[in-house]
């Protein structure tokens, strides 16, 4: 099963490689991983998407907790939460297809953030399924380049992850 794990880490050089190294050394999957500073300059927050049996996820969270740089950790998938991913996608936009692409972008509530004579660059935010659906809708033929942020997640309501 897919899990989204949020991690608060000491903002130290090498902290990211400790997490990445743990996953490769122990043979765990990483589907996506994002890391950035937070409102507290001493910690950075990592969102990690992984998958595995309950036993494996339990080991992953225990092993992550064991890392000295990990301050706190929350498996978002254990409770109500929201997830978002952002995608920048460059599309071939010529001829009659140009108008059709614009309509698709509107349907998916994306924004065209750059226009050239032959391309559109689109910004799209949503859960990963929505981004996948958009890629499928526009079709491989017009896709020139795709950049995805990886998944961000946050728990609903009062529950949170603070250092």
């Amino acid at each position: 099963m897919r899990h989204i794990i949020s991690i608060l880490m000491e903002n130290e050089a090498g902290a990211l490689s400790r997490v990445a190294g743990l996953f490769s050394a122990r043979g765990y999957n990483i589907e996506s991983l994002t890391v950035a500073p937070t409102e507290d300059p001493t910690v950075s927050r990592m969102t990690l998407v992984t998958s595995g049996s309950e036993e494996i996820i339990e080991q992953i969270t225990k092993q992550l907790n064991k890392l000295v740089d990990v301050v706190k950790l929350l498996d978002l998938t254990e409770g109500p939460h929201m997830e978002r991913e952002m995608m920048l996608i460059k599309l071939r936009a010529t001829g009659t297809g140009r108008e059709e692409l614009k309509r698709l972008v509107d349907i998916f509530r994306g924004r065209i953030i750059e226009v050239t004579a032959s391309t559109y660059t689109v910004e799209l935010t949503g859960n990963s399924g929505k981004l996948d659906a958009f890629l499928e809708a526009v079709g491989e033929l017009v896709i020139l380049e795709v950049v995805r942020s990886g998944v961000l997640g946050i728990a609903r309501g009062e529950k949170g992850l603070r250092a």
Binding site: K62, Q63, K66
Partner: peptide, 8 residues
Amino acid sequence: VDPASIAK
């Protein structure tokens, strides 16, 4: 003493 050793 190590929770990660349990149920590994």
